[in-house]
Design a protein around this nucleic acid. Structure first.
Lengths: 100, 100
DNA sequence: TTTTCAATTCGCAAATTTACGAACAATTTT
DNA sequence: AAAATTGTTCGTAAATTTGCGAATTGAAAA
């Protein structure tokens, strides 16, 4: 697994990280929502999604760690949005993959 | 995890499966190669990639299970190609996700 | 100051993923 | 028939992922 990091290009590693972040239906749902409506609150998601709040929190954290979303504190809530810069990076990486 | 399968759309579930198949650098490398060169043999990959043959076999199996590649026996080798039909499905799903 | 609210972190369990070498098939070559 | 070639499957170990409820944090309202 150390060889692996040396062998692959940074683009390949980054694409894999983005794909992993998108590889769970809950996370895909959140991302899909944020591409349509600018932002949302954890509480709104929690009311809709059939998972515990703590589980949702973990998924949000993973999306944040992958750089795909960001959260602004708007006490007492947290407002989540796409990280537009990285979302564009992801778009380009996937576009490159799919369009030869 | 049962609620989850009922809550999400088939497109969301399918997108998540494709993303998961693409979420490992080895699998991404294989797919990237197959988008550029029509087909390849497991042995060719094995010579290049820094992983054991058995590990490679598992990754190929996952790509096959996700429907992204297919293998034809060409004794004594196996010739792997993209599954063009499903690859196109994946392309459209990701396109929909990224282009609003 | 106590209570409430929104959300995260903690602790844990179950399932899945990743990886390897050894053993195993199936076919071809010697 | 024996040996070599190609690739998969098996058994196993370590790490990661997914999930939950309980406990915690931090700020606002009562």
């Amino acid at each position: 697994m150390d060889d692996i990091k040396l062998f692959f290009t940074e683009n390949q590693m980054q694409s894999a990280r983005f794909a992993k972040a998108l590889s769970h239906p809950v996370r895909l749902y959140i991302i899909g929502l944020l591409t349509k409506q600018a932002c949302c609150y954890s509480g709104d998601l929690s009311e809709v999604l059939p998972i515990a709040k703590s589980t949702l929190s973990q998924h949000l954290k993973e999306l944040k760690n992958a750089g795909l979303i960001q959260g602004e504190i708007e006490t007492p809530k947290i407002r989540y949005c796409l990280n537009e810069e990285n979302w564009e990076k992801a778009r380009i990486l996937f576009e490159d993959l799919f369009n030869k």
